[in-house]
Design a protein around this nucleic acid. Sequence first.
DNA 1: GACGCGCGCCC
DNA 2: GTACGGGCGCGCGTCC
Length: 661
Amino acid sequence: MQYTDYKNALPNLKGKIIAFDTEATGLDPWHGDRVFCWAYYSSKGEWGFMWKTSSNLAWLKNLLNDDSKHIVFHNAKYDLQMLYFEGIDVFNLKSDIHDTMVLSKVLDSVEKFHNLRHLSRRYLRGDTSDKDEIEYWLKSNKRAFVKQYNRSPNFSDAPIKLIKKRVLWDAQTTLKLFSKLYPLAKKRCRELYETERKLILVCLHMELSGVTIDISKAKQLKEEASNHSKQIQKELNQLVCPLTLQYNKGKEVIKQFNPNSPLKHLPAAFEKLGISLRYRTKPKKNKKKGRKTGGGNWSFDEYSLIRYTSKPLSEVLYQSSKENWGFDKFYNVIHNIVDKYKLPKSELLPALILKHRELTKLVSTYYAHLIEDCVDVVTTPAGREFGVLHCKFNQSEAVTGRFSSSKPNLQNMPRLLGPRECFIPRKGRKLWLIDYAQVEMRFYAHFAKDKKMAERLPSDLHRWTASEMYKKPPEQITKEERERAGSINFAVIYGSGAATMAETLSRKGSPTTQSKALQFINKYHSIYPSVRKTARKLSHQLAVQGYITNPFGRRYYIPNKFSYKALNYMCQGTSADLIKKAMVGIWFWLRERCLRTKLLMTIHDELVFEIPYSEEKLVLPKLIQFMEDRTNYFVPITVGIDVAKKRWSQKEKFELTSLVH
DNA sequence: GACGCGCGCCC
DNA sequence: GTACGGGCGCGCGTCC
């Protein structure tokens, strides 16, 4: 085979559609990874391989700005990000950018794999052996490489022949896939694909913008949490050590108890203190295997641990969990309770484990990343450190169409504990949080065309539901009753059965039997009969045609045995596509007007913006206009606004009317 | 080192 | 007799 390196003459491509694949030294440009080569295949059969040189880069840049071309990538966000770091203005390219990964996801949302290898097998019956070679090389040369260069090998270290084979195969496969998938998408869900295609830029821009972190604050909170966890560790050691652990090989006596070891240390500690174990773990759904796995071990989750304590203590533990007590309060209260009621010291074990777990989780999952993953760290004259955190947002990961976030995951920052204190707006700006009001519930009402639900949603659905369930006027409904009705609202729309609902309600502190749960469910369906009808209608549709389609044209090929998921997918997916469309509208509107307002995050039904003071009046009403939809659904889809001047944790309600004077 | 598992945070 | 939606990621322990 002949390869061209284009040392002198650069090609003038005739093909209108050109698939590209770039290869880089790694995945993370923020920590130095860079493109080093690429390959292309065009619809006129032209193809080639190029190293990254300044002239080749200039050629590529020109091509990307040729408005007669369609440029196809597989996972364009990645390639564009890499090209951004080569100085290319990827947000204003004149060519049309396409993405076969996005196409694949749009066509079959439920399919788990969208990489080239799988798609090649599925749509092209392609040979994938070329692709595996380089990965095999990396694996088998890792050890020697680390020894010699003190780092792992990356793609750029592989033999040139393998690199070329791989990158050309990727580009060629991308082109073939595009010619297969694009016509399908155009026919089936053109609008949806167009939204997702534009969303690539929105998403990349969010990632590149990043969010500002008060690193000093994170360090301080991390220090506090780890000191507290050490204090608990000490007390736990006194309580249970020395501890004898049983292993296959034999016994081991330890002086340092590890509360994060649910298989070894925890059973040993409970046994030593004379608490007989009662609860076992249940099999859990495994995403990879698609079935339930595990289960059967002793369980030490929060609910089990609380049940190992007697009433006065367990009530306190529930309360603390609900209200997120600080360390000192928690620590004092549990010791006071144990003294006051003369409970055996061993009851401290579950309580201390719970707090220890919370603290170590805060440190390892949250604070550590807020501190270590920041870039562009600056230190003020006063000695405070600030940095920017660039997480990843993935528009094509969740089966329903939702976004996911990773490295670190900004979508699961605890709402009541410290981490949100570390998120701050840039100078001269505030954080604005705009969230849809009970959006999924509204889509349930929409799909069910349930008048009663629709009327109640804008006021207080849970309260009304509770009122009807407990046969009391709404104003007499207690907080607990309203919460329970809320749980039931959610459980029913998740398609849950009596067993799970009983478990959920019990976990939340209101012990419920299965038969009671069944009564709740039946009662619920007698209040809102159209929900069950709609679920059945969707299951039927699924059985007949093999898929269901949401209002944005996203199809869900749900296996029939999971048809109970249909209604939930429809509601979750519709709200996901609604917010995606709003994001695109907003981002392009902001860009056209060269505004400095930034979209920072998307958290399922909420968008987080950073708005300069001077743009508030102009931008806020427009954002709301893009997000809300008061006409196209059975229930108006509306938003609420919160603003955080200093820290995410200090957000407060905001009324748009207060903006108009 | 990869993977399964238990656990827990978010909407 | 079955069945609670969608995510990410940690530490531990086992197996290769």
